[in-house]
Design a protein around this nucleic acid. Sequence first.
DNA 1: CTGAAAGCGCTTACAG
DNA 2: CTGAAAGCGCTTACAG
Lengths: 345, 345
Amino acid sequence: MTMQNPARRRPPTIHDVARVAGVSRGTVSRFLNGGHHVSPAAAESVKAAIRRTGYVVNRHARSLITGRSGSVAFLLTEPQERFFEDPNFNVLLRGCTRALAAHDIPLLLMIAGTRAEQQRNLRFIAAGHVDGVLLVSSHTGDPVAQQLTDAGIPVVACGKPVGRDGTSARLSYVAADDRSGARDMVRYLIASGRRRIATVAGPPDTPGGVDRLGGYREILAEAGLPPDEDLIAAGDYSRDSGARAATELLTRRPDLDAVFVASDLMAQGVLAALEAAGRRVPEDVAVAGFDDSPAALAARPELTTIRQPWDRISTEMVRVLLAQLAGEPPSAVVLPTELIRRASA
Amino acid sequence: MTMQNPARRRPPTIHDVARVAGVSRGTVSRFLNGGHHVSPAAAESVKAAIRRTGYVVNRHARSLITGRSGSVAFLLTEPQERFFEDPNFNVLLRGCTRALAAHDIPLLLMIAGTRAEQQRNLRFIAAGHVDGVLLVSSHTGDPVAQQLTDAGIPVVACGKPVGRDGTSARLSYVAADDRSGARDMVRYLIASGRRRIATVAGPPDTPGGVDRLGGYREILAEAGLPPDEDLIAAGDYSRDSGARAATELLTRRPDLDAVFVASDLMAQGVLAALEAAGRRVPEDVAVAGFDDSPAALAARPELTTIRQPWDRISTEMVRVLLAQLAGEPPSAVVLPTELIRRASA
DNA sequence: CTGAAAGCGCTTACAG
DNA sequence: CTGAAAGCGCTTACAG
């Protein structure tokens, strides 16, 4: 770790710019930081000097004095196997990276699947190496959000935190309207004539697991369809768990004519199980997914599903975080979903 | 951007540690940087003082003086639509993040799909804000690798750069053995009795596009099968392009009995086109993919494919980059692939 | 082995 | 509006 490439010459500093512009370093710095208290003439010559020298601010020096790093962490505490398999993750990560880049803010990617990794990242963040955190973590048991807010770090979570109590009121979040999306889909299934509608829910410690199931129950009740726990199974958002849940549902209720599945990936598993059982989709059984991920298009038949506005979710997360960095209080943003009709239902 | 959370008190500095340990700041710093020229007794008291104060080094101050940022960029110059859709991307990104985290090195994620984004990121990197770059970019026309090495930045590319000339000899890379993987698969198809073996190649300006096609041609020749350009089509690694290519191949050679496809995603498209044409897989036509991505398992039937060792690719990329940061010369690493048998061939 | 001191590049009151 | 100066927290020769 000792060698420095000799071809790499030392970049120009604020001092070089000041000399070329014929002003003091303080004036250059003031120009860089908003241009207040800088005369138009001075501003002009500084601008020209910056161009001429190719000056780029040294963020380390700036951070040392301001106490802010100018960067943001994208922290993934989800056990990575599951979430990295989720195509939504890419859209979210890309969106956040882009939205931050528009503000010249680098994104540090941090993965904390294990407890040890969580601690290491927490120390790093608490040491002030990032100004704020975009948090992706959907499980209740996860103490990271609380620890971060306790440490005074601005945090914006992706998805509604489950089991929020009073102490976590400081936590901002951005989420799609899971409940409303579920309601739309089940209403659609009923409207297309289905009556024995099963569901494969997500884990009960995730917002998607709770609210999508809640919406399903509500619409069934509103339609006067009797509640039936035999029509309800749960998975862990993986493809395999969807297949297992569907097999179980078919055993309990062989007469089911629709399955509302809480994720596209699980819906792929449901399709496989239905095929293995000799059921035709959508003729015998309608299958509806959730997410409108690439998995929905890869499925055969292509999935009717609920689109989550991932592009907007990512830009909103960044917007809310930057607002907090600027001193505004935490806020919650819930975004509408959209029903996408394809071949499976 | 002005408010500082008042609850966030100033973290301990090296000065606090020195005071508690009863030594000078220089001694603490020497302890932190390898412990050379520090007596065992001093080391002990410093260690205790660090624990007691909860000291964490201020990386900005360190970077300011060492000229090194202690961080690394993961730079994606691929037009993002395509590569973010690629499930391999996740595995690679996660692997690199983890491998770097083991060395306490943060990863900055940078996306440069457009020319403007490339320039912005290039400026950021050349300004010394990262020590090295893990580069993902598979297209020849892409000047980023050259610009980075010209600027004296250590770079490790993922995949063999196409059209390398003498001037890019400084560029390290880590890649799977595409040619050998393609040879294995075509040999397997021949061994299972196929004789009219078509291929859907990748873009000719990507290493996968060149070497997988090259391996295909070689084995056909070695087996004494006549070369036939009608059996060769190309896609752009997207699912749709695979479907289009397969449709074209079926028109030109309706008698084909196998298709070797240069990616699993394109193979999904090939499967769809074959199904639409009424061909059974693998009975009428064997289909083989490449990558062993999640797409291979999502396909129906599940794909026989070539596994790329993405875990090893990512750890090797990080190893080679760290070696370069330590002063070692660039190097190339080519990793073996593995044939995975499933239902499609 | 260890301390005192200089300096990395920047920002920010403080005077003028 | 602008300059001179202090200081952010650290590393590194330099003496001892």
